[in-house]
Nucleic acid binder design. Sequence first.
DNA 1: TGTACATCAGTGAACGCGCGTTCACTGATGTAC
DNA 2: TGTACATCAGTGAACGCGCGTTCACTGATGTAC
Lengths: 232, 232
Amino acid sequence: MNTVRGARERARIEVTAAIKDEARRRLAADGAAKLSLRAVARDLGMVSSALYRYFPSRDELLTALIVDAYDSVGAAAEEADARALAAGNPPRARWIALCEAVRTWALEHPHEYALIYGSPVPGYSAPLDTVGPASRVGNAMIAIVRAAYEGHGLSLPPLPAALRPEAVRMTADFAEGLPPEVTAALVAAWAQLVGLVSFELFGQFNRVVEDRATFFAHAAGQLAHGVGLPAV
Amino acid sequence: MNTVRGARERARIEVTAAIKDEARRRLAADGAAKLSLRAVARDLGMVSSALYRYFPSRDELLTALIVDAYDSVGAAAEEADARALAAGNPPRARWIALCEAVRTWALEHPHEYALIYGSPVPGYSAPLDTVGPASRVGNAMIAIVRAAYEGHGLSLPPLPAALRPEAVRMTADFAEGLPPEVTAALVAAWAQLVGLVSFELFGQFNRVVEDRATFFAHAAGQLAHGVGLPAV
DNA sequence: TGTACATCAGTGAACGCGCGTTCACTGATGTAC
DNA sequence: TGTACATCAGTGAACGCGCGTTCACTGATGTAC
């Protein structure tokens, strides 16, 4: 009985996955703004109205892709960090491994990267379901820096007075226990990391940076420095 | 005669500008991927085929908007720097003024910002005409750092050996005379600046950073530090 | 085990809509003599 | 200055296309007794 009902459920899971896979493929061709249920259905050999059995609207499908993308890059970051940790690497090396993992994931999934870190899709507004998955990379960064802080401590210059209240609030909200100047530096580093990856992926480095892997590795090291994880 | 021919030419210039203005308005509503000649024409009270007197295709109109956007943010950056220079400010203050100008421009023109620094428009590939305008902000940054270098010099840690050749090449290509470690730091800072602005504009700071102006000011100072313009 | 019924995936037609681009045209503006 | 002609902006119809979503339907799968 369970296995029988399971058959229908399993079919449902498989078709849902096939739709999302095909939608990811269409993303590459047309971009998120033009993602079309009809095109997805066509390439899947289904009739467009059939997709409504799986997603109540085009926007819900987009949301599913966004959640998947955040989870995918989040998992990549977490796994890279876990490997670095298991190899006995110090926090700085874990940080750099995480940055490299984000870049590698982005190069392998450029359109999913654009979906979550590129321009917002006009007319689409992300529901709250995306908030959790969206913070996985950031949380992994916090964990690394926290480990460093609880180990040998971190020394960063003091915050300007104007930023202190905001940094204290951010710390209480999502990085409890860290010094506020570390929290502020972390958030900035996170945005800067995505800036570096976006420039490479979105073509701003064309005719500017050629050896991008080497350049990125160096920049990731600078970011580590910025959050208080110096080279030596 | 000149004035008579000028009348037709002036009309042409005015209508061209009106089309671009309307297109910028549509950009806000629909985004670049869905920018539609017919919608622009409709809102302008023209018939869609009339636009072909001014732009040979939708993509050419997009290109014009992109070039305008790069010129607009480039001019904003240059002017902010010029004002800071005229006020007798040192390079670090000029740098921060430039960063603030980019952010302010982005907040005032979010859809044009997304057009140039957001995800690329699928199916559209920017022609070479955009390369020059695209480098104005970067060139302004180079000028500031060059002034500092030629004044008191800059001290940055030496480059890792692996990055040296690339940094030397970049320097020869567009920042002649600067030490290669400065060039590399500049390019990274440029990408990081855009990362900070994109995060704010694209919603990644929702539920994370609230006092964004203060946060950005601090981050711009950190970027200045990163290119060898320390606080004291 | 067998049967009656409920659930659900997928179909195909239809709704009303918008798109980029082409083309032959009208009529106003500008030019040459 | 006046006239014949060329240039050009803008029109309106048409081309072939794609879209999201709804709805009544068929037929297979699962459930309860």
